[in-house]
Nucleic acid binder design. Sequence first.
DNA 1: TAAGTGCGTCGTT
DNA 2: AACGACGCACTTA
Length: 172
Amino acid sequence: MKNDMPTPTHTIPIPTPDGEFTARYSSQGLCALEFPSGMKQRRKEAVTARPAAQVLQWHAATSKSLRLTLAGRPLKAPPPIDLSSGTEFQQRVWQTLRKIPRGRTWSYAQVAQAIGNPKAVRAVGGACGANPIPVFVPCHRVVAANSGLGGFSGGLNWKRALLRREGVTVPD
DNA sequence: TAAGTGCGTCGTT
DNA sequence: AACGACGCACTTA
């Protein structure tokens, strides 16, 4: 069963040296982060009200944290994360991903074991692919057990880049 | 070793 | 009922 999407109250772009990311906020905090899209998708996101002070504060934290991460620096004070869009299973997986130390990688099997569902290896892969907040919910730290990378919604090049920038040596 | 095939498993659509 | 961001056992070169 899928929960209702947290209604994003605000959608705000984040310019970085790697392109323009897009952050979405709900009343609970950051609920989605999108990689720069190749095309200039200038469509208006129907943002009604002007961001409240609360959201602006979160966004400042998001921007700063994102830029630090992209620069290969350890992340300091990330914004509150809203994972309520996921199913029970997905949320369990996503919370677990947040426990993977920076610079380290776990296999999909290890994650499955960590959530107490050792046989749901493939399902874990699915949950990773559905992760709405990459980078902050480090799904890029989950790799295949046989020394290969798995996949990555944002493109494998991003997965490699993120891992390398935090000191992990990965194959081509 | 390296590369390819088949199948169990489980959450999601 | 079908499909994966998997893993493992088991062939073949």
